[in-house]
């Protein structure tokens, strides 16, 4: 059970944070299909920074500090990369779907290119000597003590980065709904002419929306590389960016429902990757593995469920009304 929840969180939190990334962009009126590409780029930048610093002989004893530096680097990298989308969508009034797709094509190619230049191989890794995971000992729990469920989940084998991300998720959700900034951002995605008529700078808000989106997607990519991919950046995040888009739509562009949706998808991903280790009721029987179903069935599960859920829910979803439309000052 503890294993199931922990593994689910490993997928759920990046999904959540990237879906929130999409929400910030789309609520401001810019469709962000580039989430996947930004994740790839953010993951690469985060891993690269940690590698550079530790290769320089610094921070070997301060893994948790390095982790924070990696996170910040990934966020800034993602934010800068997303500016490409912002410029094309806002200044050049280009088709946002095409702009996002272009970034998705650019990111893996660029990242692969850089990885090969830097390492000469197909991956770039955080140094094996660094372990960012926290164990029971780090929380002062003695060896040999029987762990209860809470301790199993929250105090053993945890990545603090996930909790940072969760905190950020809560803070940003509150900002989106209860602050002046959030109200204005949302108005730009719904009715930019109305926002303009009350003196809100729509293009500025959209820039901010896209940039926040980029930093969050970069963070999500880094989380994925660190946890699910075991500290490796390979120019690929396994379609998590697109899954996050689905989570965002399924979650109706609303942080609360996105969290719920991310849990469903995270659980599916967890089953897909670790079904043979899952022991739901703790009786030592691995029920899913014993069913004798082909492992491929489990592996397509998250993607199949995405398709099915979206087919049924997308009709009722309420996308921000003005998303995808370049803002034109003179339009009626």
């Amino acid at each position: 059970m503890a294993f199931f929840i922990q593994q689910t969180l490993v997928f759920m939190i990046p999904l959540m944070i990237v879906a929130l990334a999409g929400t910030f962009s789309e609520r401001s009126g810019v469709i962000n299909l580039a989430l996947e590409g930004i994740m790839i780029f953010g993951a690469f930048i985060g891993v690269l920074f940690i590698k550079i610093i530790s290769d320089a002989g610094l921070g070997q004893d301060h893994a948790q500090l390095l982790l924070i530096i990696g996170i910040l680097a990934a966020m800034i990298g993602g934010g800068i990369f997303s500016l490409l989308l912002a410029v094309s969508a806002i200044n050049l009034k280009a088709d946002q779907t095409i702009g996002g797709t272009a970034l998705n094509l650019l990111a893996p190619a660029l990242v692969m290119f850089l990885i090969i230049i830097i390492t000469g191989s197909n991956t770039i890794n955080t140094p094996a000597s660094l372990d960012f995971m926290l164990y029971r000992g780090d929380f002062g729990i003695a060896e040999g003590k029987e762990l209860n469920l809470f301790e199993q989940i929250f105090m053993n084998k945890v990545y603090l980065s996930n909790w940072y991300a969760l905190g950020l998720y809560v803070i940003l959700s509150v900002i989106l709904y209860f602050t002046k900034f959030g109200l204005r951002l949302r108005s730009c995605g719904e009715h930019p002419q109305a926002a303009d008529s009350v003196g809100i700078n729509v293009n500025k808000m959209r820039y901010i929306g896209v940039t926040i989106s980029g930093t969050l997607a970069g963070l999500g990519g880094f989380l994925f590389a660190l946890t699910a991919a075991g500290g490796a950046s390979t120019g690929d995040v396994a379609g998590m960016g697109f899954l996050a888009l689905a989570v965002m739509i399924f979650g109706n562009w609303n942080p609360l429902t996105i969290a719920g949706a991310a849990f469903v998808f995270g659980a599916c991903k967890c089953i897909a990757s670790g079904y043979q280790y899952i022991d739901i009721n703790g009786d030592g029987i691995y029920a899913l593995a014993n069913l004798g179903i082909s492992k491929y069935v489990y592996m397509i599960l998250p993607y199949a469920i995405t398709l099915i859920i979206l087919a049924f829910t997308s009709k009722n979803s309420h996308a921000p009304k003005a998303e995808g439309q370049p803002f034109d000052h003179g339009q009626r």
Partner: peptide, 10 residues
Amino acid sequence: HQHFKLVEVF
């Protein structure tokens, strides 16, 4: 304005 400038979902 002639066409109201109101955000419908607000």
